[in-house]
Nucleic acid binder design. Structure first.
Lengths: 156, 156
DNA sequence: TGCTTAGCTTACGTTTGCGTCAACGTCCAG
DNA sequence: CTGGACGTTGACGCAAACGTAAGCTAAGCA
C-alpha cells in the first residue's frame, strides 16, 4: 500500500507565489549547498542527487560541489508537494518541463490544473477502495470475534 | 500509490465457514485444475503459480499438472480476501502458516484478529493521508485557478 | 599531521506482484 | 495428421525511490 510511513516532516504549503514566472532572485542568501536544502526540507543528500539524476532539479556547480539557487529551491518545493499529493516523480517532471516551456504561461497552468483534477479523482477512488477494505475488515473482525467467543466458551 | 487498478472482479465475501477447522472434503467436485480456479476467481495462471512459488497454496500433482483441492480453493479465497484488504502476500502467508499450526485454534484466531485490527488502524491512517492530500490538492487547484483567471483577464 | 565534516561518483540491492516471452509436452476433435 | 486448448518450467523485465556501501577529494581546525 502507498502513503506509507513518514508523511510527517515538511508540509510547507504551496502558495500562489510558487507558480510565479520566476522567483525574484535578488534577495541575499541565494545559494544553497546540498546539505542546506536537505536539512531545510528533511530529505537526504541521496534524494537530492537522485532528483538531479532524474532532471527534476539541475543545480549549478562550484567545481564538483552543487550549488542550488532559489529557483532550484522552488522546484524542490514543488516536487515535494507533488509527492505529498501522490504524483510520481515522472509526472512531476512532466509538469515541471511543461512549466519551463513557458509558451504563454496560461497553457501550462491549464494542463497542470487538469492533472490536479485527475489526481483528485484518483485519490477519491483510492479513498473509496480503502473504505471498502475497512468495511470488509470490520465485518471479518466481527465474524472472527464471534467464533472466538464460541470457542472460548466451549473450551472455557 | 497503492490500491490501484482493478479492484473489481471477485469480491466474494468471507464467511465464518472460511475459518472452519477443515473444509468438509467429502463433496463431489473436489478437484480443480489451475484453469478452473483461475476462471472462478478471475486471476491468471501465472498468479496461481506465483502463489504456489510463495508457498501460499500447494496443490497436488497429477504428473506435472496441478490439482487443487477444496482446501486449496479455500486458501486461495483467503489470500484474495487478504489482498483486498491490503495485506501483503508475506503477511498473508504468515497468517496461513499460523493457521496451519493449529495449536488449539483459539490462539491463531486471536493473532489474526490482532493483525486485522492493526490493518484497520493502518488503513485509517492511509485514509487520513489521502484526505490531507485531497485537501492540499483542492487548495492548490483553487490557487492555480485563481491565477488562471487573472492571466486570462490580463491577456483578454 | 591527523581527524572531522561535507561532498563527490559509481553502481548494485531492495521490495512487491506478477507480465511476458520462450520453448515444449499432451490430449482431443476433426 | 494437424490444429487448438490447456498445461509445464524457467527466467528476464518492470516500476518507484531511494538505501547503502565503497572509495576518493578537499577544506577547516586543533
Amino acid at each position: 500500500m502507498a502513503q506509507d510511513k513518514q508523511s510527517i516532516a515538511q508540509a510547507s504549503a504551496i502558495a500562489a507565489d510558487d507558480f510565479a514566472p520566476d522567483g525574484d532572485d535578488t534577495g541575499r542568501s541565494n545559494l544553497f549547498t546540498i546539505g542546506d536544502l536537505a536539512r531545510e526540507f528533511g530529505v537526504t543528500l541521496r534524494t537530492l542527487r537522485f532528483y538531479e539524476d532524474k532532471d527534476l532539479i539541475t543545480p549549478q556547480r562550484d567545481g564538483l560541489n552543487r550549488l542550488y539557487t532559489r529557483r532550484d529551491r522552488a522546484r524542490l518545493k514543488l516536487v515535494l508537494m507533488g509527492k505529498r499529493v501522490g504524483f510520481s516523480l515522472n509526472e512531476i517532471k512532466d509538469m515541471l518541463d511543461l512549466y519551463d516551456l513557458r509558451d504563454g504561461q496560461v497553457m501550462q497552468l491549464k494542463v497542470a490544473l487538469g492533472k490536479f483534477n485527475e489526481q483528485i479523482a484518483l485519490l477519491e477512488r483510492q479513498k473509496k477502495d480503502i473504505e471498502q477494505a475497512l468495511t470488509e475488515l470490520r465485518r471479518t473482525v466481527s465474524v472472527v470475534g464471534g467464533l472466538l467467543k464460541e470457542k472460548e466458551q466451549a473450551a472455557g
